[in-house]
Each structure stands twice: as C-alpha cells, then as structure tokens.
Design a protein around this nucleic acid. Structure first.
Length: 582
DNA sequence: GCCGTTTTCGGCCCGACTGTTTTCAGTCG
C-alpha cells in the first residue's frame, strides 16, 4: 500500500470512530475530507514533505492534520489514531459498513446490546435483543440480516465497464414508458469513475407512477429496496443496486446536477449559491427568502434556474462544468479545458492479432480500424518473454513485420504500422535488442510481470523504458487491474518528468479492467505537459468499444485532444513516430 | 477540524425514504 493510501485509510478510520463516539459531525467530515484529499494525491505525500511543501495549502488539510501526517511519516503511526482505536471494539467498524446502519445505530447496539462485531450482532439479533432497542423493530432487524447476507456474497464496487452497459439497457426500457420525456444515468457513472457503488438513473416524466412501476418490475430486479413517490431503489441479480429518481421536466437540470454529484462538488455549488443569496436543491436554484422551515418548491416559489444544468451554473457565475470534472479538484477556479471526446480519436496504436494472443487476423484488425474511421492502426503483438501470450521471437517478428507491411501496401485509406508491445523486463531492459526495435515503426513498451517490486526498483525500471530512444509509448504503465491488483508502485512525478523530456507518451489503457494510467495520474501528466496515448489494447473487434472508458478516464484527468497522440492528424502523428527512428 | 475581500469565532448543503413513532431520528446520496 502506498503512503497516501495508508494515511487515507487512517484518517477515514479516525472519522468513523469519531462518528461512533458522537463527535461533532463537522469534525467527522473534516477527517473524511483529509482522507479523500490524501487518496487523490498523485504525488507521494512523503515526497511532498521532503520537498518542503506546506500540506496546509491543500484544501481541507489544516494545521492539525498536517501535524498528524508529519507524525506518521516520522514514526509510522498517529497517536490520536491509536487512542481512538483503543476506545472502540475493532469489529464495530465493519458493522458501520453495513448499508442502513450508521454511527448512531451502531453505537446504540454497542452500548445497550453489547454488540462488538458482526458475530455478536448476529447473536443479539437471534436472541431478540436488537429488536427491543429504541427505534428498532422486526423490519429493521430483517433489513440488517439481508444487508449482512448481501455484504458476504458480493464485491463492494463494480467496474465502470460492467455498469455502463447495464445502465444504458435500463434507460432504453425507461424511455419507452409512456410519459417519459428524458432519461439519463447520473452519479459516479456519469462522472466516468473507474468503479461505481450503484447506478443512479433519472427520469423526467408526466407519469411518475408508471416510470416507478416499470423500473421496479424490470428484468433482472430481484429485490425492491425503496418505493416512494419520487424515489425507488432496487437490487439486480448481479448484486448491483440501482436508484431511480423521478422528476418533472421543469426541474430536470437541477435533478441531473444534484444526482450527478460528486457530493463535494454539490456542496461547493450550494455554498456558492448561498453567497449569492440563493438556495440550490434538486428542484432548482431558488431565491433565499430566509424561510428554511419548508423547502422553497413546496411554497410555490419560482426558481431562478432549474430546467438545465447550464442555466444553473450560469446563475452562480460558472460555465457548464463537464461531469468528469465535478470532483472539487479545482474545477471552480481553473480555466476549464476543452476535453477530449471519443470523436477526436483517429488512431489505435496498441492492438493484437492472431500472431500472439489476439483473435483477429491483420486484415480483420485493419478492416475494423478503418470501419471506425481511423487514419492509422498499429499492429503491436507481444514480445518473446510473454510466453503465455504467444509472444514473438525475433524470427517470427520479422515474418510478422513483412506480413503487416504487405497489408499496408495493399490497403487504401488507412496507414498500417508494424509495431510491437515489448515487455519491459524486471531490470528495465527491453525484450528485443535495439536493432530489432529499430526495424519496427512503433514500439509500445509495457510491464507485464514482477509488478510487486519496491518503489525504487519499479520506478527505475519504467524510467529506463521512458528514456529509451526507440520507445514511443509506455503501455499500461503500472500494470494494475481495477480492484484486483495494485500494480507497480511508481514515483509518477519522476516518470512524468522523464516522459516530457524524452517525448514519450504515457498510455491510458482503455480496457475497463485496466484503466491505467488512472485519472489522477493523467491529471498530473497533463499538468506537467506530457503526451498521452489512449489505446484499447484490442484483442478482438469488440474491444474497440472500450475506447470510451479510456476517454472518460482522460477527461477525468483534464486531457485535451492536443495532448493525446491518438487524436492528432495523420501527418503530425506520423512525424512524431518517425522522429524516434534512426 | 477547517476556513475567512463581510468573519480568527461561528458558522459549516439539502431533501427523500424508512421504520419507528404519533412527530421524528437515522441514513443515504
């Protein structure tokens, strides 16, 4: 685990324990805020401190938290954290993670029923003790049982690539329901996060009941979690939770804004509204008449803006902010970039054929790229060390290059490059010698094995490839798998600086299992002026469709088309590629 | 605990739903 992740975990744990103790809720959220800030940092916090940077310049980190971070870096622990941990049973924090159970309830169960962990919670439910507690009843106990069973059988978050098609399919069904005017997904899915906790759907309709009913009875729904007039929630057979909010067309923009989040972005927006004498909620932006007992929309007050997101942003003096940037990571103050789109992508520079572990012939791969309107496709099969992927030795590679060049010669309307995805070996050497590499039009260098090296070794390894004069792109630089494998622990700042110096592009591997570089890394690379490649690493025709996940990740990293080599016109791209050849 | 061209103290976003209650606390997003 990286230092940032370790510290983020500690601060979140402190927030949880403070909440259990009934501490001031703002103090609780301040700790959680620091945890989030640390988790988002692309630079190792130890490096920042060693450079002499003042951590309190980061939004949400004050003197006290900065001192605690310093203490951790010096001693390996935080005294306050130890004290807090000693005050509550360790097993209580796991109970806090059960959906529907918050700090107040967990504390009640601890103090009045002796619950200290999941096992004792089960025992006390069985003994009928929980049901007798204040504000608890048979239904609540039943809900806790269901939630516990669910937690045991499912992973916590779902990959973007697994959720997006489900959401789109459900939207298709909802759009066909009579009365539905607009339907969209919101939440972390719309923001393009690499994983999502649940799917949030939004519908504007003249017939709320019909939309709610259609939603709750949709194919794949196994449990209805909530069924209100404007809000429903269901669980799918896959374990995925889906929430639906139903609104009138007049407040669609306010609702879309609200349910897209992030929560932090919304909080900032509402603060901005308050400063302008306005109140923002999911029904619209309203004048603040000082009456807060009842919501403005219930009192017939006309909103200043509500129909579209654009109107609402404009009313608080902001341009429309793309969902991918709504993370409270500077989007309110910075000049907003013209973010890259899928339509900007004109080239695929990392794809496999049957020569290694792909499923397409060279001709089929080229035909697919051409069908998508690309001006360039690079054929980049695996190098010899990737034995399981049927990597090519030099002899097979020569024959393969000849075959690729033959296809290029006879194919019109698209340039076919003879390349390779070359392993970056453990010590940073590449899997082919320079003479072989020089024969190729394009070299993508990627790490595939030994992904648990220590930070220094890992950084030196990737750095060697970045500096190699014959390498164009570093493929999936960390080798991580979303939620499954952490990948190389790299000093990204060093890698990025070298990438800028040597004009080497860093890849966003668009495969939704990889998404590597990740969003925060892309942001750091873009800010430093590095080039980014977005490649699908296609092994079959359908993999080209994964492009959108890579583009979303790029957008979350504030990437513009000008910084992405795949978006360049053919001439510019080919010149860049040729410049790395003798 | 954090923050400040109104403030270094006193604020800190807003509403729906559930399950328990006879008016609301807790949780969630």
């Amino acid at each position: 685990m990286s230092t940032n992740t370790e510290l983020a975990t500690i601060f979140q744990e402190m927030a949880d324990i403070l909440a259990l103790q009934g501490a001031n809720s703002f103090r609780v959220s301040a700790h959680a805020r620091v945890a989030r800030e640390l988790a988002d940092l692309s630079t190792d916090v130890r490096t920042l401190v060693e450079r002499g940077e003042d951590l309190t310049t980061y939004e949400g980190i004050g003197d006290k938290s900065a001192k605690k971070i310093s203490e951790y870096l010096e001693t390996g622990h935080i005294t306050e954290h130890e004290t807090l941990k000693a005050a509550v049973p360790a097993g209580l924090l796991a109970i806090l993670a059960v959906p529907g159970l918050g700090p107040k309830t967990v504390r009640l169960m601890w103090e009045q029923a002796g619950v200290t962990d999941v096992a004792s919670l089960r025992a006390q439910m069985d003994a009928g003790v929980i049901e007798q507690l204040p504000r608890m009843g048979a239904k609540t106990v039943e809900n806790i049982r269901t939630a516990l069973a669910f937690l045991e059988t499912s992973a916590d978050r779902v990959r973007l690539g697994a959720a997006l098609p489900v959401a789109e399919s459900m939207l298709t069904t909802l759009r066909a329901v009579p009365g539905v005017i607009e339907a969209a997904f919101a939440g972390s899915l719309r923001r393009g996060c690499e994983t999502i906790g649940d799917i949030d759907l939004l519908v504007a309709t003249t017939d709320p009941d019909a939309a709610g009913e259609a939603f709750r009875t949709m194919d794949g729904v196994v449990q209805v979690l909530a069924a209100g007039a404007t809000k429903s929630a269901v669980r799918l057979g896959s374990g995925l939770q889906v929430d639906l909010r139903v609104v009138e067309e007049a407040s669609y923009g306010a609702a879309l804004l609200y349910f897209t989040g992030s929560k932090q972005h919304n909080v900032r927006l509402r603060e901005r509204a308050v400063k302008r004498g306005l109140r923002l909620n999911e029904y619209g932006l309203f004048p603040d008449d000082g009456t807060h007992d009842e919501a403005p929309q219930r009192r017939g007050i006309a909103p200043v803006a509500a129909r579209t997101e654009e109107e609402i942003y404009a009313a608080v003096d902001l341009p429309w902010i793309p969902p991918e940037l709504r993370e409270d990571r500077g989007e309110f103050t910075a000049a907003l970039p013209d973010l890259i789109t899928c339509d900007d992508i004109r080239a695929e520079l990392h794809a496999h054929t049957t020569a290694s572990d792909g499923r397409l012939s060279i001709e089929a791969l080229v035909a697919e790229a051409k069908r998508r309107g690309y001006h360039t496709i690079a054929v980049t099969d695996h190098s010899r060390s990737s034995v399981l992927a049927n990597g090519l030795d030099v002899e097979r590679l020569r024959a393969h290059v000849d075959a690729i060049r033959a296809v290029d010669a006879k194919t019109k309307g698209i340039r076919v490059l003879a390349g390779a995805e070359v392993d970056i070996l453990v010590d940073g050497d590449l899997d082919y010698d320079d003479e072989t590499l020089a024969m190729l039009d394009l070299v993508v260098a990627s790490p595939h094995v030994s992904l648990k090296q220590d930070r220094a070794k890992a950084t030196a390894r990737i750095l060697a490839a970045v500096r190699h004069p014959l390498v164009h792109i570093i493929g999936h630089p960390t080798g991580r798998f979303v939620g499954r494998r952490e990948g190389l622990d790299l000093d990204l700042d060093v890698i990025i600086a070298a990438a800028v110096e040597h004009d080497t592009a860093l890849e966003i591997n668009a495969n939704n299992v990889r998404l590597d570089l990740r969003d925060t890394h892309v942001r750091a690379a873009v800010e430093a002026g590095a080039l980014i490649a977005i490649n699908t690493d296609a092994h079959g025709a359908e993999h080209f469709d994964e492009l959108r996940y890579g583009v979303l990740t790029g957008r979350r990293g504030w990437l513009t088309a000008d910084r992405c080599v795949n978006a360049w016109p053919a001439r510019r791209l080919h010149d860049w590629i040729a410049a790395k050849r003798p």
